[in-house]
């Protein structure tokens, strides 16, 4: 059985969340908790690294949607980095690339905060 893990790394002004495994209705609450912690700590410049995310359903997509407005209101953003082709296709199907910036490399997403 594959599992789901959320890891977090804090840089000076940017926090990175690493998603590993599958993100569905069962595991979405773990991701939600990680984002809520960042918001509570006022760390709203967020990069979500998707390189190890093997699967996403609408329950996982809903977490991104549930937080983005609040995070942008606070002057932050959620930027996506390194999605696999499989996961990117699902994002694309729902038009997420219009709403979220997607980067091939994590460093590019981090740099975007530092240059903007």
């Amino acid at each position: 059985m594959s599992e789901f893990h959320v890891k977090r790394k804090d840089l000076t002004t940017v926090s990175i969340i690493y998603l590993n495994g599958y993100l569905d209705a069962h595991t979405a609450p773990d991701f939600e908790k990680a984002l809520q912690e960042l918001v509570d700590q006022e760390r709203v410049n967020i990069v979500v690294n998707l390189s190890e995310l093997t699967y996403i359903s609408s329950a996982g997509l809903g977490v991104f949607m549930g937080f983005i407005e609040n995070i942008r209101d606070k002057g932050g953003d959620i930027k996506l980095a390194e999605p696999t082709e499989k996961v990117y296709r699902v994002f694309d199907l729902l038009g997420f690339p219009v709403l979220y910036e997607v980067f091939k490399k994590e460093e590019e997403a981090i740099n975007k905060y530092q240059t903007s």
Binding site: S57, S58, L61, G62, M65, G66, I68, E69, V90, L93, L94, G95, V98, L99
Partner: peptide
Amino acid sequence: DMKSYLAEIRVGGLGIYLMKQL
């Protein structure tokens, strides 16, 4: 409607839309 959905950033209700797309 995906345009208004993206504009309004609505949460949830995506499952049936996805099923019909897939």
